[in-house]
Design a binder for these strands. Structure first.
Lengths: 221, 221
DNA sequence: GTCTATAGTTCGATAGAC
DNA sequence: GTCTATCGAACTATAGAC
């Protein structure tokens, strides 16, 4: 049991750096978060970041894949359990898709993770390496959920399932980062911080939207 | 008619700077786009940016409010027309909310605007001035559309209407920037660049989701 | 209104001691 | 594996000529 302890290892400097990087990249973006600031937040020298991760891009990629991998493993495990038990409902599939990201945001290792906004920023970045990172991190998981949606909704075509998947993810991800907008626009009736209330609405909204896409006419002129 | 010509004025250096700033801020983010790069893209000296807009923040704010103001004027004009004619459908309201942003993205003044991703990045930025900018730019428009949704859907409460509005905007905005994901995930059945096809699906998806929120139980434990 | 030139700061990355 | 010290480049912003 010596050496690389599996599972819940004691926090190493290497992990501390990833935690600090995630918090700062999420808050300030790739260019806005400096290696200096990350090193200071992690409590280590700046040179140590380059020793472990070589470049700033390398650090970003390591931070991104650690979290996205953890989230996707939970997603797919839940999906596999549901598929093994029978035909899951659309609501079940959407819940399995969305809740793991919220739970990752409550990660006890750091307060107030905002990984959701990091995904959005990385998806729309101009750099090819960032789009490639998103593709490598999420595409295979996304394909399995799109297939599951088509299985749960006869009549849902490939294009509609893809758009539906992207709508669902976009609707929820944009609400996971606390922007304070829900509180303000609702006059206090909705609260940004109440991610459970948000998620229960998102599941209702998304499931109904997906069902409508399954029955809508193929249209296009 | 001399002096400040209203309407479609000939492109001035001041406007050229805003065009270049919008393209670069959208592509690289606030920190990632440098004043040097913006000046070069606009074909003017860097000092001219500071002469017209004082600071980088000032330039960003001028760029942001120009586009958001133009979009919101169209949105509210369409909403007013619909309300004057009678009780608009949910589909009509969603269409009036979403289409102006897509049309702004096709702005002939520049190729391939990606203002949608700029809104997302600005909404989730950590800086208070950016969140404040989003609030000043969008809150009053959003309140009017939320009220219109509640008018079109009896049974839709304030909290549900607010979450629903935010879901609709989040679902559509995340698909307006061409990420290439729809093409890849659908095997070519859906195409990122076909924003009209995306929007027609978004309207179906969003209207059904909003209707479901209007009839769902109040839940919360 | 637009330019050149530059001051002063911060950045990513590396060298080299321990 | 972790540190201090530093290099060279890029950054925002300003001064001052035209």
């Amino acid at each position: 049991m010596a050496g690389h302890t599996a599972g819940t290892a004691k926090a190493t400097a290497k992990e501390d750096i990833l935690d600090a990087a995630e918090a700062l990249f999420a808050a300030r973006g790739f260019e806005g978060a400096s290696m200096r600031a990350i090193a200071e937040a992690a409590g280590v020298a700046q040179a140590l970041l380059h020793y472990h991760y070589k470049t700033k891009e390398g650090l970003f990629e390591a931070m991104f894949t650690r979290r996205s991998g953890a989230i996707n493993r939970i997603r797919l495990a839940r999906l596999d359990v549901m598929l093994a038990r029978g035909r899951p409902t659309v609501e079940d599939i959407v819940e399995a898709l969305l809740r793991p990201t919220i739970e990752a945001g409550h990660d006890p290792s750091r307060g107030g993770s905002r990984f959701a906004s990091l995904i959005l920023a990385t998806s729309t970045a101009e750099g090819d390496w960032q789009k490639g990172l998103v593709a490598r991190s999420y595409d295979s998981m996304a394909e399995r959920f799109i297939a599951a949606l088509m299985g749960a909704l006869p009549g849902l075509g490939r294009a509609e399932a893809t758009w539906g998947y992207l709508f669902v993810v976009g609707a929820a991800l944009t609400q996971m980062a606390p922007t304070g907008r829900a509180d303000r626009l609702s006059g206090g009736a909705a609260r940004d911080e109440d991610t459970d209330a948000m998620l229960s609405r998102a599941v209702i909204f998304a499931a109904a939207g997906l069902k409508a896409l399954a029955t809508a006419p193929p249209d296009d002129h």
